[in-house]
Every structure is written in C-alpha cells, then in structure tokens.
Write a protein that binds this DNA or RNA. Sequence first.
RNA 1: GCCCCGGUGGCGGAAUUGGCAGACGCGGCGGACUCAAAAUCCGUUGUCGAAAGACAUGAGGGUUCGAGUCCCUCCCGGGGCACCA
Length: 684
Amino acid sequence: MTDTASSSAVGGFADEVTRGEPSERYDVFAVQEKWMPVWDELAPFRSGRPDDPRPKKYVLDMFPYPSGDLHMGHAEAYALGDVVARYWVQRGFNVLHPIGWDAFGLPAENAAIQRGIDPAAWTYENIATQKASMRRYACSFDWDRVLNTCDPEYYRWNQWLFLRFFEKGLAYRKPSMVNWCPNDQTVLANEQVVNGLCERCDTPVTKKKLTQWYFRITEYADRLLDDMAQLEGQWPEKVLLMQRNWIGRSTGADVAFEIEGRPEPVTVYTTRPDTLYGATFFVVAADSDLAAELASGSPPEVQQQFADYLEQVQRTSEIDRLSTDRPKTGVFLQRHAINPVNGERLPIYAADYVLADYGHGAIMAVPAHDQRDLDFARAFDLPVRVVVNTGEDDPASTGQATTGDGELMNSGPLNGLRKEAAIEKIIEILRENKHGDAAVNYRLRDWLISRQRYWGTPIPIVYCPDCGEVPVPDDQLPITLPPSAGLDMKPKGTSPLGGATDWVNVPCPTCDGPATRDTDTMDTFVDSSWYFLRYLDPHLDAAPFDPEAAREWLPVDQYVGGVTHAILHLLYARFFTKVLYDLGHVEFTEPFTRLLNQGMVVMGGSAMSKSRGNLVRLSDELEAHGVDAIRLSMVFAGPPEDDIDWSDVSAAGSRKFLSRAWRLAGDVTSAPGTDPASGDPDLR
RNA sequence: GCCCCGGUGGCGGAAUUGGCAGACGCGGCGGACUCAAAAUCCGUUGUCGAAAGACAUGAGGGUUCGAGUCCCUCCCGGGGCACCA
C-alpha cells in the first residue's frame, strides 16, 4: 500500500466502492460515509489487547485544551500523528495512539465568570464537541483510553505525585518575589512570562512577594542538560537549543568579599574571575534581603533614598524592566566591600540591574569588561579599569576583551596569562586563601506551581497550628474540588477555594485538631507532565500507572505537537520522568524518543483569528471537501515542520487527486483480491 | 544586541555525495468530449527569443572541469533569547 493511502483516513477498500454508480463510486464522501460507521463498530485502533504478539509502538499527539471546537491547527497535527500511527500499524506494529484532554485551566474559569456557568460543565461540553470532531476527522485514536485531567480519577494522581515529590524534598514552600498577573490575579511561572507579559492575556506582569509551592527542578538542571545527548538527532535542534538556553548553565567562580561593618563576607558569582583586579564597585540587587540589611546600616538619609528607590523598583512592570535602552539606576549605600585580591575598598550600590534570584543577588562590577557595569559606571561616574598584562597594551592580546576604555590595571599574578589560564589561576588563588572557589550557575529557576484559581488540582497539604505543613495521607486522596456553585470565582488575589468553608476546614491528619487546607491549585503543566503514562490505563485505581505496562510501551516513540511547548511542557515532562526514574517507577530517563514540531496553519500570511476575520473552520472544510481530502492536503502541503498557508492549499485539488487514485485502483483491482486489511489485522 | 533557521517559477515545494535546476502537485492557458455546463481526459506552462539559442536558485565575490549545494561579504524574511554577572 502506498504512502498516499496510508495517510488517507479511510483508504484501502477499492473493491467495495466500485459498486456504486460511476458518478459517485469514486467519491470521497461515499467512502467516508461507508466506512466511518464500520470503524465506530469495530474500533480498529484499539491497542494493547492481551496476547497481541506484535512489537509495540507509542505514537503520541499533544492533547488538546478543550476550548471551543477543533481548528485547522489540530487538523494538521492529528493528520501527521495519524500518518505515523497508521504507517506503523501497516508495518505490523501494535500501535498505541491515545488522546485525552488537558482539561484544567483558566479559560474554563473565565468562561464561568463571564457567563455564570460551572467550569466543569463548560469543559465537558467542549470535550464532547471536540471528541465528535475527532471522530468525524477519522483520527485513529484508541477511544478506550481517553483521559481528562479534570477527572478526579486523574488529578488524584497529581496529588499522589505531589506527595512523593514532597517526601523527597522536591516540593517545598518558600516566600519569594513572584511573577504576578494583575489581570488573571494569579502567579505565573517564569516560563509563562513572555516578554514581560502574561502568556495568556498579555497583561504586563508585576512582582509580588508571596509564599508559594515550588518543584525543585533546578536540582535536575545538569541532568536535563546532559540527557539531551540522547535526544540529539531525534528532536528538532531548535528545541534542544531553546532548552539549553533556558537552563542556561554557566561556569565561573564564587568570590567572598568582606563588607565593612558586617561580620560575614558576601559572596558574589562571576563568570570572569580573571577580571577581579578590574573591579571598581559592588552592586546588590535592590529587592534582595541583603540590600535591605546593608541599607539598614547606612546613614538615615541614605536609608530614605533606598526605601524610595526600592518602591520605585517594585512598581516597575516587568516589561519596563526589560527594555534594553533603559538607563541604569541605583543608590549608593555608603557602605564598602573589600576586594579580596588587593584589599581595595569598593563602594556598594543597590541597583535593579542585578537580579535577586540569580547567583547570590550581588556582583562585583568590572566596567571595563562588562557592558552593564560600564553603563552603570558612566551613569554614576565610577572609574573604569582595564585588566591587562603589563607591557602589552592590547587587552585583546591576553584574551581579555574590553567593553570600555579606562585606566590600565596591573593584574598581579595573572599577568601574561590568557583568559582561560587566568581564570584557572585566580580560582586556585582564591581557593588557597579561602576567598572563593569555582562555581556553576543556572538561569533555570525552581518551578512555581501554586495558582490562586479554582479550576485545577487542589494541593494536598493541610496547615495545622500545631503540626504545621501536613501532607494529606494517600488513602484520603483524591481531594476533590468543592462544587463551584456559591463560590466567588472573580479573581481577587486569593484562591476561590478559600470561600468553600466546609471544604477548607478539616481535621489535621496528624493530630485531628482544627486545620485548614491549602486553597491553591496546581499549575496545569503538572497535569501534562505525566499524562503519557496514564494512557496505559486511565482508570487504574491502584496507582498512577502500571510500571509493567510502562516498561512495555514507553518511552513514547514519536511525539507530535506544536513548538509552542518547546520549553514549558517538554522541560517539565522531562523533569517528571527523571524524578519518576529516581523514585523507581520508570526505567527510562527521557519520555519522548522522537519529537516532531508541526508548523502552524495560517491563512493569508497571518495566524487565523476571529478578530482578523480569516478563521477557517475545520467543520466547514470537512463539509466541503471530505475528510480524506483535508488530511491529504495537510500532509501534502509541505514539510510537516513548515507552516502551511491554507490559502495556498487546494483541498479541491486533493479531492481530485483522490478520485483519480480511486478510479485507477478500481480499474486495476477489479478482482476483489486486494486484502483490505493488509498489514492491519484489526480490520480483518 | 546575542543565537538559530530560511531565501529556487504565478503558488506549495523537488534536486541522496558538488554532476542535465524546476520532480510531484496546485493554479493558469489551449484542446477533446458535450446542445451547454460540471466532471473527466489530452497537451502546454521559469524568463527572453520566431527559432537556434541565451539567461536563470536573494545580491556580490571566491574555490572547482563543473556550485541551488562548499567558502567569504552583504541584503531580506522568520524564530528564539534578552540586564542571568
């Protein structure tokens, strides 16, 4: 059978169709009308029945979010997934090709607020709509394995997994400045802040100090980075690159600076310890605890300046903070740090160009070798010193690129060394003098999972005045959401669950005294971090999944989905997999062996949207051209990873092509010898 | 600013290692069939040229017997990251 036929939804039955009148016997509609009811009855894509001797393959399409009906983007993704799934079926594999719904999340809640309806009702209705469309689109999904993440039988295991993370110290609560979306009135993970805007609603994100739950993904930074070696050549290079950048591993040194009037030294992180001799000032992040502490030892007028500055910094929206040409601002705290290598006194500034949560929230500033430090030095009229080998006047000749002109500085024991050698040497010196050591830092932050919203997985923690943070025992799971009726869903900065008094107030699992539930829900990316395991048996009652089945089916052989999830979902799922590996639940460390990012379907050069008036409805296209023609068009329009402009695609042409193929097949296979089920025992 | 990926007819795109550029399809044009239309079939379709032929893969250079493919410089488009010390 040809590739063309394998990409066709209802192909392979020429002898049946030739019985019709010539005018209709090759018609794509006649084909689909005949075979779809048969599929419904036979469920040909059910997989994993016992004693199936065929080798296994797992083809996974990223599951949809149930808002509205399927669109052309879904149509392309599922057409591609189907090509792979049916190709393997015909090659004799037992193929698992499941589907489900990523059903928790904000849109349901917003719809509930706007229209006064139940988020659950809205969600299940959309699921039904999409499911019907998928069937009409003839996707080869295994309908016996459908899951919805908003079903208690699913999110129960989110809670169970959370507790395992908690036991391992991988889930923890801490107060921190968090990204806050003033519109959605909820916190956002770093990954959900795009150019300073909320990824959902494009509202400028602000900062807020809150105590929230985190997953310790940073503990896995090295493995997330190193295990990418397994994915090389199997995943798009672009995605690997994005993940690498996101993790942002950098190597350098920690250097301890004594602070005048402070018993403990302050450590800074630098990637250029070789420029230590060129440090001319010292900066602490304005919004760090350290800045507040240092300022408290400053003269009163400086304390006031600092307080004013801090307020200004906290008012600054993320988008302003990120604008590149923004002038450097800060306050001189009238305190000093001592350069450990030459005893120089460096003035200490509080500034917002230093981030509180990277490195140690403080830096040594070397304006001759760092553009940002140079900008600051110019704004505050601070000296600039080029670290250079004595006797050579070209700093580049020692490998020490400069960003600004300045006084040349003797770099003592580093004289004559090139950059790499100088770094090695200075680290050695620092280590000997106990002033520092080599260090590694990551851009990656821990994953903030608390959300102040209703429609999500309740966090299985109870707060007891006597026992503190108490994990809910496994046998009390799931903690189901209270009904939405009567709850105030309007965003107000705290979870609507707080209003469910009967639900919130529970006896402490440990001492039975009065206690309260955590009222936040989990980020929905928790749901999608392990759903590919739940498909093995979505109704399994004893565990999130059967390890034996996981050994047989996983990792996923081919994952298909949009590049929009290149960082978020794929990084989290990789993280979860590694944790599950460490906990002994799975035997692989990477969940998705191969990844395909299909392109977008656009219309007339721009993304389809209602407001732009260029929305193409899948149902209309199916009506006009038939399932096979649409799917063929999707696959044939170009390389799968490229965008498709639907205005360039002729579905009518595909239909013509199919009719011709049918006619030809009808002519050459007049004897019904063509086994309609060749390679597909499910259809026998 | 930094880092990726692209740029080939009217369109989507082929061209395995440096070896006949434009496969295949869409669209267009001409024709057959038809009273007519739709469907279908046949032919044709990079540009210039009557033809022979010449010129053509974003622009300019280079390497080579030979370049869409390799090297250098630049232009354009798309994407990612963006005070991460």
